[in-house]
Design a protein around this nucleic acid. Structure first.
Lengths: 229, 229
DNA sequence: AGCGTTTACATTGTATACAATATACAACTA
DNA sequence: TAGTTGTATATTGTATACAATGTAAACGCT
C-alpha cells in the first residue's frame, strides 16, 4: 500500500517534523495536548520509529515537551516565555541591524520601503495574511546583512518557536503603530544613524507585547491563541 | 548479562548522549570523525535505536553533524564559528550582567571576589583545571541574576558547544589579563556603573580570541585542540 | 466512604529484522 | 588510462516485536 508520505529525498522523520511543526504553529495542535506515538503513527500509516525521532527533534526546537517514559505534549507558552522572547528578540535584532548598517545599499533600503508600503496596503485592505507576511519579510530584510550566522540562526529559531502567537497580534489589528515605526527606522538607516536605528528597532521589537499578553490571557488562562484560518 | 549502562531513571538514549557529549567536549572524539551507529551500539552493548536517537539529540546541540542517509560526524568548528561565538557571547553576557545589576548583593560581589582570588591562586600554582573551573564559575556568577531564562539557556548551550576549545586557552597560560579585567568588572559593579560593566564584560568576553585562533589554527588546519588530560 | 494495594492495560523504551540507499570496487568501454 | 556502469557490501531508514515502566480501575481493608 502506498502511504501518503511518498517524497523521495525526504525521510519520514523529516516529513513528520514538518507536518507537526506547522500544525503546532498554526494552533491546530493546542498547547498542552498530549501526543501519542502510536496514534500519530497510525494516522500517517507509518511506524512509531520515525514518529519518535520527529518528536525529539521538535522537542529540541521547543515545540514539544517530552518527559521520558511518560510522553510528549505540545509545549505550552507562559507569559514569562513571551516576555523573555520579546526581550531577547529586541536585543538580537537591534544588534544585527546596526552591526552592519554600512553594508546596507540603496537597493536594500528601497526594498524596505516597498515592503512597508505593502504592509500599509494590506493593512488598509484588511488582508491579515499579506500583512503578516510582509511584516516578517521586513524584519528579515532588516537583519539580512548580519554576518554572524550563529546569531541569525538563533533568531530564526526564536521566530519560529513564537510564531504561534505572533500572528495573532496581526489579527488584533494593532499594526498601524508598527508601520509608522518602520518608516522611522528606514529614515534612521538613510541617515546611517546607528544609535537611532538600535533604539527604534528595539522599540519596534517590543511593539504590541502588552496587547498580546492582555488579549491572549483574557481569551484563555493558558495562553493559546485561536487556530489560524 | 548486565551491561555497563545500568542506571535506573536514565534512559539509554540519555546515557549515550552524556557519554558522547563529554567525549566530544574533551576532544577524545576529534572533529570530522565519522560516527557509525553500529559501532557505537556494539561498543556499549546496546542496540542501534537509542544510539540513533542520541546522535540526533547531539546534532540539535551542535556537537554532531548528520546528513540523512549518509551518516554522522563530529561537528567541525571553523574560525568563523569561533568568531561568531565570541561575538554573541559578548553581547549576551554583557546584557545579562547589566540587566539586573541592582539585584547584585554584597554577598554576590564577595563571591565574585573570592572566585577571582581562586583564579589568581590557581594561576600561580599552574593548576590549569582549577583555573578553568573557577573561571567558568565566575562568569556564571556574573549573570546569575538575569531573569530571562531563555537567554540563560541559550548562553548555556553556547558555552557547552564551544567548551571544546575554550579550555585550551586556559592551557595556553594566557589568563593574567583576564584576571585583571575581572577585578575591574568587580570594581564597576561596586560603583553600580552600568556602562562600565557592559563595556568591561564585553571586552573580557573577547579576551584571548586572537591567541586562541592563531594557536589552534597553527597546530592543525582544521581547528581541533588537543585532547584533555 | 476513604485509603492503600494489586492487577490489568496502555504507553514508552529497546532490540531485532527487513527495506532502501549509499559506498566501494570490479569489470567493461572508449 | 580515464571514465562509466554494474554488482556486492556496508550503512542508514523503517517496521515490528518484546521488555520495562506508568496509569488507572478493581479490589480489599480499616
Amino acid at each position: 500500500m502506498m502511504s501518503r508520505v511518498n517524497r523521495f529525498s525526504k525521510t519520514l522523520r523529516e516529513e513528520i517534523v514538518d507536518i507537526l511543526r506547522e500544525a503546532i504553529i498554526k494552533n491546530k495542535l493546542k498547547p498542552g495536548t498530549k501526543i501519542s506515538e502510536m496514534e500519530l503513527a497510525e494516522e500517517y500509516g507509518i511506524s512509531r520509529t520515525p514518529v519518535r525521532e520527529a518528536l525529539w527533534q521538535l522537542e529540541s526546537e521547543g515545540f514539544v515537551k517530552i518527559i521520558p517514559r511518560k510522553g510528549a505534549v505540545v509545549a505550552t507558552i507562559t507569559e514569562e516565555d513571551v516576555r523573555n522572547f520579546y526581550e531577547l528578540r529586541a536585543l538580537l535584532e537591534s544588534y544585527a541591524a546596526t552591526r552592519t548598517l554600512d553594508k546596507m545599499t540603496e537597493k536594500d533600503i528601497k526594498k524596505l520601503e516597498s515592503l512597508n508600503k505593502k504592509m500599509e496596503k494590506a493593512y488598509k485592505a484588511g488582508d491579515v495574511k499579506e500583512l503578516y507576511r510582509a511584516h516578517n519579510e521586513f524584519h528579515k530584510q532588516l537583519i539580512k546583512h548580519c554576518e554572524n550566522k550563529l546569531l541569525l540562526q538563533i533568531l530564526e529559531n526564536l521566530y519560529q518557536r513564537f510564531q504561534r502567537f505572533r500572528w495573532y497580534l496581526t489579527l488584533l489589528k494593532k499594526m498601524e503603530g508598527s508601520i509608522e515605526q518602520h518608516w522611522q527606522i528606514i529614515d534612521a538607516i538613510k541617515r546611517r544613524d546607528r544609535e537611532a536605528v538600535a533604539e527604534l528597532v528595539k522599540e519596534n521589537a517590543y511593539y504590541g507585547i502588552e496587547t498580546l499578553i492582555r488579549e491572549v490571557l483574557k481569551r484563555s488562562g493558558d495562553f493559546s491563541p485561536p487556530e489560524e484560518k
